[in-house]
Simulated scan of single mutants.
Amino acid sequence: MDNATTIRHLREQGKHLEARDLAAALANAHPDNAEIQFEAASVHDYLDEEAQAVSYYLLALKGTLPGERRREAFLGLGSTYRTLGRYLEAETILRKGLVEFEEGNEFKVFLAMTLHHLGKGKEGMELLLRTLAETTADRHILHYRRAINHYAKDLDARF
């Protein structure tokens, strides 16, 4: 079992503090190992230690992560920045994630929240409405998809 798998295994067993300690030690010993950096970031994030997670996320994204892990790292870092009140950095990372993973609707949702914090609530709400209309399976919302998309274009329009 490799180191990153060991960390994930500990987390699956609910041993988050043990996983954090191992991840931090391994991350310090192997700064170029993107997988270990990602695991260290994730476990710190899970334990509400967002400030410590940032540097691990940054190192993970500098390295080579497989597609899904890279996607999770972009979202994790963007969400962490938002949680820490670092809204401009959150917006930048979430937009980069959305460029790299165009189908990443999760980026749109977290970006909408970030835009709200930046005083760009209209842009955020429009993004959120478009995402909802495009991705929902709820038949009641689908019934109003056309109207929701219309309002998403200009939320302030009056008729």
Results as ranks from 00 to 15, higher is better:
31 P>I: 07
50 E>G: 13
27 A>N: 00
147 A>N: 10
83 T>V: 15
86 R>G: 05
59 L>C: 10
159 F>Q: 13
104 G>Y: 07
149 N>F: 01
40 A>M: 00
81 Y>S: 11
94 L>Q: 04
63 G>F: 12
65 L>K: 01
104 G>V: 04
99 V>G: 10
7 I>N: 02
22 L>N: 03
86 R>T: 12
124 G>K: 03
32 D>H: 11
30 H>S: 05
81 Y>W: 05
111 L>I: 09
97 G>H: 06
95 R>Y: 03
63 G>L: 07
116 H>F: 14
136 T>P: 02
96 K>L: 15
110 F>S: 13
76 G>F: 02
96 K>E: 15
109 V>S: 06
109 V>Y: 11
156 D>V: 07
35 E>D: 15
42 S>H: 12
132 L>E: 11
118 L>F: 10
108 K>M: 12
41 A>N: 02
80 T>A: 08
43 V>P: 00
11 R>D: 01
18 E>W: 00
57 Y>I: 07
110 F>M: 12
153 K>M: 13
3 N>V: 10
72 E>W: 07
6 T>I: 07
135 T>K: 12
3 N>L: 15
16 H>V: 11
8 R>N: 11
5 T>K: 12
9 H>R: 15
60 A>N: 03
57 Y>N: 09
40 A>K: 00
87 Y>A: 06
16 H>M: 08
100 E>Y: 04
98 L>P: 01
98 L>D: 06
124 G>H: 04
